[in-house]
């Protein structure tokens, strides 16, 4: 997906954020293209929430610039706020109002007076319609999470910021939420998300950025990063057992009759078979497993900056 000629949905340049003397975000630069789902990954304390807080204007940046569809968040703050919807990491527990009232107020803050059609649409989509007259404290954890997503969507933002939206959420809800994100993407919405579920980020996001200790270690196409920073696993079942199968440099382990090998991307399977002196008639079964984002993530974090 190349959109270089289009106006970026999000353009972050040399973003730095300091809390006193502590530098939480260090000269981070990346773009999100229109209609793209982009994941910002990193261990706890990497600076993901700081970046989301800056984009949503909850925190002020120390230096650098952030533009949303070309709108600078510092120079045209009000205009930039209208373009984004944000789901914060921590659940909001507003006690006085019911679900519909909360969404009605949220619409009003964005200058939308009668928004019941959009509100009902979102409530249906997120499975909250039956609970629309409940107060927040009467909702389950998952429903509260969905309400936060609903709040972020009432004004039809062009860029959605999701800060660990599936933290503490069960598998079914996580799946529903990601399906909804896919739907939003198909409607043209751009999404920046942070998550600790790397498998889900791998399936959902076209591109990712890996952040550690405030520094952006890697940014690029998810598939490319996996290819570049993870190892392919090859499982071979042979007719006979030979000691030199285990002496190979790429050998990992032997399990249930399968010899497993981790191959870097630039090493071919043929080369491995050659090194093992294996002919087609010696092989009973052969399986390959592609590298995972988890593996690439670990490698990226270990990389020296």
């Amino acid at each position: 997906m190349t959109h270089k000629s289009e106006l970026a949905a999000l353009e972050i340049e040399n973003l730095t954020k300091c809390y006193g003397t502590f530098e939480a975000v260090k000269k981070v630069s990346f773009n999100i293209f229109p209609g793209e789902v982009f994941a910002l990954l990193g261990p706890n304390g990497a600076g993901k929430t700081s970046i989301i807080s800056i984009i949503s204007t909850l925190e002020k940046l120390t230096s650098g610039s952030v533009k949303i569809f070309g709108v600078d968040i510092e120079k045209e703050t009000m205009q930039s706020k209208r373009l984004i919807g944000v789901v914060h990491q921590e659940i909001v527990n507003s006690g006085f109002f019911d679900v519909t009232e909360i969404l009605d107020f949220m619409s009003g803050y964005y200058g939308i007076y009668k928004n019941s059609e959009r509100i009902n649409y979102i409530l249906h989509k997120l499975g909250l319609y039956e609970h629309r007259q409940k107060k927040v404290k009467q909702l389950s954890g998952g429903m509260k999470r969905r309400l936060m997503v609903a709040k972020a969507l009432v004004h039809s933002p062009k860029l959605l910021l999701l800060d660990e939206p599936t933290a503490g959420v069960d598998i079914q809800l996580r799946e529903d939420l990601w399906n909804f994100v896919r739907e939003l993407q198909s409607e043209g919405m751009s999404v920046l998300l942070t998550t600790h579920y790397l498998q889900e980020a791998q399936e959902l996001c076209q591109r990712i950025g890996i952040l550690d200790k405030g520094q952006l270690k890697l940014v690029g196409q998810t598939k490319e990063i996996i290819k570049q920073f993870s190892l392919r696993k090859i499982l071979i079942k042979t007719k006979t057992e030979e000691s030199h199968y285990e002496a190979n440099a790429f050998f990992e382990k032997k399990d249930q009759g399968y010899y497993s090998y981790f191959l870097p991307d630039n090493n071919y399977l043929g080369k491995l078979l050659q090194e093992l002196s294996l002919k087609a008639e010696d092989i009973l079964d052969i399986q390959t497993q592609e590298g995972s984002l988890e593996m690439a993530f670990k490698k990226a974090i270990e990389m020296k900056s």
């Binding site: 204007t57 909850l58 009000m78 205009q79 944000v86 507003s94 200058g111 709040k151």
Partner: peptide, 18 residues
Amino acid sequence: AVSKFSGDLEDLRVAPLT
């Protein structure tokens, strides 16, 4: 104060309210 407790004061910061 209540909004600071519940966290929804952040909504007022994020929304285009002057």
